[in-house]
Nucleic acid binder design. Sequence first.
DNA 1: TAGATTGTTAATCGATTAACAATC
DNA 2: TAGATTGTTAATCGATTAACAATC
Lengths: 215, 215
Amino acid sequence: MEERNISQAVIRRLPRYYRYLGDLLENEVERISSNDLSKRMNVTASQIRQDLNNFGGFGQQGYGYNVKYLHTEIGKILGLDNTHNFVIIGAGNLGQALAKYVSFEKRGFIIKGLFDVNPRLEGMSIRGIPIRKMDELKNFIKDNNIEIAVLTIPKEKAVEVADMLVDTKIKGIWNFAHTDLKLPKHIIVENVHLSDSLMSLSYRIGHQGRKMPQD
Amino acid sequence: MEERNISQAVIRRLPRYYRYLGDLLENEVERISSNDLSKRMNVTASQIRQDLNNFGGFGQQGYGYNVKYLHTEIGKILGLDNTHNFVIIGAGNLGQALAKYVSFEKRGFIIKGLFDVNPRLEGMSIRGIPIRKMDELKNFIKDNNIEIAVLTIPKEKAVEVADMLVDTKIKGIWNFAHTDLKLPKHIIVENVHLSDSLMSLSYRIGHQGRKMPQD
DNA sequence: TAGATTGTTAATCGATTAACAATC
DNA sequence: TAGATTGTTAATCGATTAACAATC
């Protein structure tokens, strides 16, 4: 797997391939051609073949792709063959909702801890996971081999906490705060800006009828 | 405002401009050049000028952009000068978290109703908003001038509900279910696929060191 | 074998960046 | 006015699509 220089666009499409292949697997489809898959996914067959060939030749001429094999391989590319420990920082509504969300665990993302800046929440627990104080965070990350920190706190706090995380072994931040964190490159930041998403929905609602690229 | 054929890439950047301009406004910055803004946002000044000029000339040679004016204008482009009524369908953890999230209201997105497929939740209420049964949905949409439906239900249910929404005046769906809804083009779908987002974070964590486009 | 479909190269398309004349 | 900075055209870059030889 000697891939190199994969574009963001391709990376964003991988989970979608993974999802469709998982569905096919559930429906006991054994093999699929790029052409069939392209129709289901509403993309071009060419794009599928190009995307996959960034990572190696998973198909067979005249046959197509073996669904189970391709699903497994994309899973490996996405790092789903290993578990990833994470903590949630911010035990508000969204943090709690994510903590209760069990599907992540099925994919190998294991919640190990829950933290909050509000010390009064200490002692409470969600799904059996106690809410801890922030001053325990650094040691907790070290002791529990935490790879990912999920930030579900207001933006001002998020910037503070992110700066603090720089000194730890954290590899990635899943950032739900409405701000762009400026961090050293070795810490990967994946943003989920819900209000940005809602605003772009609003834009598209308001500007419908005009010719859109996907029309 | 005679814009036409705006690319998805540009649309996705608009909320980010709006956010940065809002921050500048809070800090009482009166004017900003594309060059200054580009440094803060980590994009090229050229891109900012190109993006904005899709919608008209908001700047002034030798001066730059008036922060307050540009903020307002982008707000209008995003449809934030009007309110938008929405319902949340699915009163589980995520649905409840979104219902409790007050920032949407500040932007003019008003939660009018909360629905769940589980009839046993009827009678409960979140933030004073009663959870309603699905069979009330269609009339509720009509009576309350609902523009947006937020889907926070499992994928199988989401497909069903989305099909049902086709017969209503709903303009857009904010879809948190892990599936791509196939709907007529006049209904705008904005997806928030959290597990896709987490997987692409996982990919990037695992493939760090390789040259990334943004490096 | 013949038919199907990949992997991959080449062509096209679109988005980003650079450059600069216009102008405040 | 001189300096600064936009709006916009042109150049570049990258991503998508098309085409087809390789091959199962």
